[in-house]
């Protein structure tokens, strides 16, 4: 189970990496934490001629908050996100979802950028970042561009990143005072990829009604915004029957894919259930924080 032969580059700066990508983009692969890429190399599912190792790009590992925007460097390890007080305050959803990713040793190496770009349909970050309305900044020798996560991720492990582009940063709007976020997933075992996952971010109005609802889910194909579910919740006071209607909408609009672990019906059902549970958690948290 060994990778095919490849050349290895170890650039020490982003510009060096971009030059390499410009020369070899089509036949090269960037390697970050290696937690998804190395297994694929070992199975020879990918056989790039070169690997561009960006672990030397230390200035791409950071977590900053500026003017209501949380900026996370692509090379930030998942473990740092889990432990960061900045994230816990500005995007609690991200911290919560990170705890569901694999196991500590994998989170120590795996990066947020690598996970987003690997875009496993069952991974935690794509669905979470989609829910949070995040955008990314990518660069190439041709220049930089900003892509909303909703335009970045495609079904089946694909993204709209060009072969010569490097992901630099992920930007997330900071959670406001009156928001409440929650994440729910079901996996066969602790640490496994989710059979289904749902992320919710709610903004409450003064009346107790929900001003803004962001709901994203995934069930084996690709993370997707559940817009019908969002619509069913926006402007409503989240009573049991409203939550029921939201879950029913999520169940209808999710596009599940079955595999040996879970069939489509079951995943569809789980999305409804996870929606229900995530909403209950977010609404409960909100109620809890108001009582304090």
């Amino acid at each position: 189970m060994k990778p095919a032969q490849f050349a290895l580059d170890t650039p020490q700066s982003a510009s060096e990496a971009l030059a390499l990508l410009s020369d070899h983009g089509d036949s090269a692969k960037v390697i970050a934490g290696g937690q998804s890429l190395v297994p694929m190399l070992n199975f020879r599912l990918v056989t790039p001629e070169r690997l561009i190792d960006i672990n030397g790009l230390e200035d791409l590992a950071y977590i900053r908050e500026n003017d209501g925007v949380l900026a996370i460097g692509a090379m930030t390890r998942q473990q740092e996100i889990e432990a960061s007080p900045v994230i816990a305050a500005a995007a609690p959803l991200l911290a919560e979802a990170t705890r569901e990713i694999a196991h500590p040793s994998i989170r120590n190496r795996g990066t947020v950028g690598g996970s987003l770009l690997h875009n496993d349909p069952s991974a935690e970050y794509p669905v979470t970042l989609l829910c949070l309305g995040a955008e990314v900044e990518v660069a190439s020798v041709r220049g930089n561009r900003t892509i909303p996560v909703s335009d970045l991720i495609l079904p089946w492990f694909s993204t709209t990143l060009e072969p010569d582009e490097l992901l630099l940063e992920i930007r997330v709007p900071v959670a406001g005072e009156s928001t409440s976020q929650a994440f729910e997933e079901l996996a066969r075992r602790k640490g496994d990829f989710a059979l289904a996952a749902v992320a919710v971010a709610l903004t409450f109005g003064a009346s107790g009604a929900i001003e803004k609802a962001a709901i994203a889910g995934t069930a084996g194909r690709c993370a997707q915004r559940l817009t019908e579910a969002e619509r069913a919740l926006t402007g409503e006071v989240p009573t049991d029957s409203v939550v029921g209607a939201v879950a029913a909408a999520a169940e209808t609009e999710i596009q599940p894919v079955g595999d040996i672990h879970a069939d489509e019906d079951y995943r569809r059902h789980l999305v409804a259930l996870m929606t229900r549970r995530a909403l209950a958690k977010a609404i409960g948290d909100r109620a809890g924080s108001k009582e304090d």
Binding site: G244, A247, A248, A250, E251, R268, H269, L270, A272, L273, T275, R276
Partner: peptide, 14 residues
Amino acid sequence: RDAGAFEDGRSAAS
């Protein structure tokens, strides 16, 4: 589900 465990036999939504 097949045993009718969910009231209207449909989903968790209900």
